[in-house]
Every structure is written in structure tokens, then in C-alpha cells.
Design a protein around this nucleic acid. Sequence first.
DNA 1: ACTATGTGCAACTTGTTGGTTGCATGATAC
DNA 2: GTATCATGCAACCAACAAGTTGCACATAGT
Lengths: 106, 106
Amino acid sequence: MRSEVSEVFSALADDTRRAIYERLLAQPSGLTATQLSKDSSVSRQAIVKHLQLLGGAGLARSLREGRDVLYLATPRGTELASKWLVENGAAWDRRLAALQKRAKDS
Amino acid sequence: MRSEVSEVFSALADDTRRAIYERLLAQPSGLTATQLSKDSSVSRQAIVKHLQLLGGAGLARSLREGRDVLYLATPRGTELASKWLVENGAAWDRRLAALQKRAKDS
DNA sequence: ACTATGTGCAACTTGTTGGTTGCATGATAC
DNA sequence: GTATCATGCAACCAACAAGTTGCACATAGT
């Protein structure tokens, strides 16, 4: 089973999908798949698939509104990605610290 | 052509590849594909492919050392990913600010 | 020189991904 | 109640990704 953080990175690895996510971010009231597909080069069905994938990665959620289905950005996904990056950024700091220690000891 | 940041996210989206990258981070002097494959479930050739992909994403570079080829972690890739996350994290702040403004105005 | 070992290259298999089209279903507005 | 419009579902396709095996080539060490 693919790890959670893998799902997030994988969701963010596609240009189309990142563009969708950015549009959701810019529109806090949400957007429907049909609206998103209006000025997009790909079909509504393709958009829906992307939205479901974003949902699985904790980057979006859906909300039924009568006949429409609104999609909204959620923060959990990017939190996971940030967490991994911060933790591994810390490795760079440790490397730097080790370097400085060696320099001081010599 | 797939964007640069897509390449980074895509590189980080695979568990095997992230594990390799983390090992490179922990070993500032570098590791060879053969060394990496010793205690890994996949073949050396698979590891090499991952390393080349990491290289393409600015997450690693290679260095010939006699008969061996050392692979080292590089910071550029994670910088690109962090940049995207920070910029889009800022969208959440803007949304919060808009919410507060509306609350104050009412 | 011979042998060990590390690397490079290529063909191939299998599963996944991003996209399509076609059609059925469900809610709205007159 | 019927025309309209958004959604849901399924089959299909081409390209790519992750992995394998097999073998050739290069560099060390003795």
C-alpha cells in the first residue's frame, strides 16, 4: 500500500491537477467539475478523476449542493507534504552542523 | 513538457525513491548504486533508474570515483517543492484574512 | 594475465495514469 | 411533465513507470 505522503506528492506531480488545486484554493466557495472543465483543455470526466485523486490525497473534498457537486480545497494534504519537506530539510542542517564541528575540531 | 516542479513531486511520489533519497541525505559522502541495492529489495538496475530520475529532478547528482559512481543528495529539488508549497500555503493565509475582514465588516 | 566486482545498455513484462467517448441517471426550471 | 443540464458509470486506448533478466564493458587487486 502506497504511503499517505506518496499520494500527496503524486497528486501534486501533475500539471493539470495542480492547476485545478490552485483554482480551488483561489475560490473558497468551491467549484463544480463542470465549471472547472469550462475553461480547461480536458473533459469534465477527466477533471472529475483528478478531483477524486485530490480528494484521496487530502487536498480536496466534495460537497453536494442540490444538483451540483462543489469541490473545495482542504489543507491536510499540503500539511503532510510540508511535514516531510521540513523533516528532510532538517537533514541538511545536521549535515551543515557536522561540517562546522569538523572544521572547529581541526 | 512537464514542468520542473512536477518532476520534483513526481520523484518524491515513490516510496522506494524517497527511501533512496533519505539514505543519500544521511550519507553526505555519497553512496553507489551497488551499495544502495545491497540492503534493498529491488535490483541495482532499478536503483540506478531511480537515481537518474532523482538527478533529473535536482535531488541528486553523480560523481565518478575510479570504478565507482557515487551519488549525492542535492538541495535544489526540495527547494523547488518548498517554494511551491510556501506560495500555495500563502493562499490559505489570504483566505483567512478575507474571512476576518468579512467578520469585522459585519 | 586473470579474476573480481561495479557499471552501462537494452529488451521485455506488468501495472498504472491521463485521457477519451458514449450513455444512463437525477435534479431543476418552466 | 418535459426539456435541460450536471453528474455517474463503464469501456476503452496510448503512454509511461517500476521492475525484471541477460550480457557486454571497464577498472581493480593479486
